[in-house]
């Protein structure tokens, strides 16, 4: 069974390139996308339209953009780390910011790791492969409630 990855990303072209990179890297993962921080919280919390966990399963890994409308990635991390059944969810920040204050703040708020979005398609496929090998294969995942 493929692992599940939830991607919180507001930029449609980044979504498109990520989908392509997962396909190109031959990663057997089920991808789900949300378009901003509020939608990520609705999805993870199982609100209204995301209540059906067969269609919207809890992910094994979340890829989180930082700069998003409504609620940003930091807000999502802050919310997530105090949710009893969800707080250990593995989160990798995937962003175009390499500012030390963003990196530090993301780790302070409990990000498991932090990656820079590459510019080229090949580099993105390589990043996706590394994510898959490390977080979906090598790492021993936490247990989430309601999974």
């Amino acid at each position: 069974m493929g692992k599940r990855v939830l991607v919180a990303e507001d930029d449609p072209s980044d979504v498109f390139f990520l989908q392509r990179a997962f396909a190109a890297a031959n990663v057997p993962a089920n991808l789900h996308f949300v378009r901003d921080g509020q939608e990520a919280i609705d999805y993870l919390g199982g609100d209204a339209r995301f209540a059906d966990r067969t269609t919207y399963p809890l992910p094994d890994l979340m890829l989180l953009d930082l700069k998003m409308p409504r609620m940003n990635g930091f807000d999502v991390l802050e919310w997530l780390r105090i949710q009893p059944g969800l707080k250990r969810l593995l989160v990798t920040v995937l962003t175009s910011s390499d500012q030390p204050q963003d990196i530090n703040r993301a780790y302070d708020l409990g990000a498991n790791s932090y990656l820079l979005k590459p510019h080229s398609t090949n580099d993105l496929a390589e990043v996706v492969k590394r994510l898959q090998r490390y977080w979906l294969e090598l790492n021993r995942n936490p247990v989430l409630l309601n999974q």
């Binding site: 390499d98 030390p100 990196i103 790791s113 932090y114 820079l116 590394r130 994510l131 090598l138």
Partner: peptide, 18 residues
Amino acid sequence: ETMKHFGEFWFGGTLLPN
């Protein structure tokens, strides 16, 4: 193998905090 994948991930592009 474990150390190889560990190194590729954490020292191969992951940005680390100060």
